[in-house]
Deep mutational scan, measured.
Amino acid sequence: VVEKVLDRRVVKGQVEYLLKWKGFSEEHNTWEPEKNLDCPELISEFMKK
């Protein structure tokens, strides 16, 4: 389960987000493609920053 979106990048035309996973430490954060995500409210919250 995604706890928080930390960053955004574009790699080869694909948007990816750096995710903080609930119950895991920062060392387990991962970059995931936008198309694989199902957390629009967290993405929206990140984009407001």
Rank of each mutant, 00 (worst) to 15 (best):
E32S: 09
L18Y: 08
P40F: 13
G23H: 09
K49Y: 07
D38K: 09
E32G: 05
L18W: 07
E26V: 12
G13V: 01
K35V: 12
V1I: 15
K22C: 11
H28E: 02
K48T: 08
E41S: 13
R9N: 00
D38W: 05
L42F: 04
M47S: 11
H28K: 04
K48G: 11
E16T: 04
W21L: 06
L6K: 11
S25W: 02
G13I: 00
K49E: 08
L19T: 15
V11D: 10
K20D: 01
S44I: 10
N36S: 15
K35E: 13
R9E: 00
Y17V: 04
Q14I: 15
E41V: 11
G13T: 07
S44E: 15
V15Y: 05
V15L: 07
V11G: 05
K4Q: 08
V5W: 00
R9H: 03
T30N: 05
E27M: 12
Q14A: 08
K35G: 13
E34Q: 07
L37W: 02
C39A: 10
V10N: 04
V15K: 04
E34S: 07
E16A: 04
D7S: 09
W31R: 00
E3N: 03
E32Y: 15
H28S: 10
K35H: 09
K4P: 00
K12M: 14
L18M: 06
V11H: 15
L18Q: 09
V5E: 01
V15Q: 05
K20S: 10
L37D: 02
W31E: 01
P33S: 14
L6Y: 04
P40H: 15
H28N: 02
T30Q: 08
S25Q: 05
E3Y: 04
V2L: 03
K20W: 01
V15T: 14
C39D: 10
D7P: 00
E45Q: 05
L19E: 00
K22D: 10
V11W: 08
L42R: 11
Y17D: 01
E26D: 15
R9W: 00
V15S: 05
G23W: 08
E3D: 11
L6M: 11
L37N: 04
L18V: 00
G13Y: 04
L37P: 00
F24W: 08
T30V: 05
V15W: 05
K49C: 15
E26P: 13
D38E: 14
V11Q: 14
E34R: 04
R8Y: 08
K20G: 06
F24L: 13
N36P: 02
W21K: 05
L42Y: 07
E27L: 11
R8Q: 09
K20P: 01
S25A: 09
F46P: 01
K12E: 14
L37Q: 05
Y17A: 00
C39P: 02
M47I: 15
G23Y: 06
M47A: 14
L18T: 00
K35D: 12
K48C: 06
R8L: 06
P40C: 11
Y17W: 07
S44W: 09
W31C: 00
E41P: 06
L42D: 04
E32I: 08
L6G: 02
E34L: 06
K4Y: 04
K48D: 11
T30F: 01
T30Y: 02
T30D: 04
K4D: 04
K22S: 11
V10A: 06
P40I: 08
K12P: 01
F24E: 08
F46I: 03
F46W: 13
V5R: 01
E26N: 12
P33K: 07
E27P: 05
L42G: 03
K20L: 04
T30R: 10
V1W: 07
I43K: 02
V10H: 05
G13F: 01
F46S: 05
K12A: 08
K12H: 09
S44F: 08
K20N: 05
H28R: 11
K35W: 06
T30E: 04
M47Y: 07
W31I: 01
W21F: 11
D7T: 02
E45H: 03
L6F: 03
H28Q: 12
E26M: 09
V15H: 10
K12I: 01
L18F: 12
P33V: 12
E3L: 03
I43L: 15
K22N: 10
D38N: 10
E27R: 12
R9D: 01
C39H: 07
V11L: 13
W21V: 02
E16H: 15
V2Q: 03
I43P: 02
H28D: 15
Q14S: 12
R9Y: 00
F46G: 03
D38Q: 14
N36D: 14
K12D: 14
K48M: 15
E16K: 03
W21P: 02
N36L: 08
S25K: 07
E3V: 04
E3G: 03
D38I: 14
Y17G: 00
K35T: 13
K35C: 12
V11S: 10
S25F: 01
G13S: 09
F24R: 11
L37E: 01
Q14D: 14
E41C: 10
S25V: 04
K48Q: 15
D7W: 01
E34G: 09
V11R: 14
V5K: 00
E32W: 12
K20V: 04
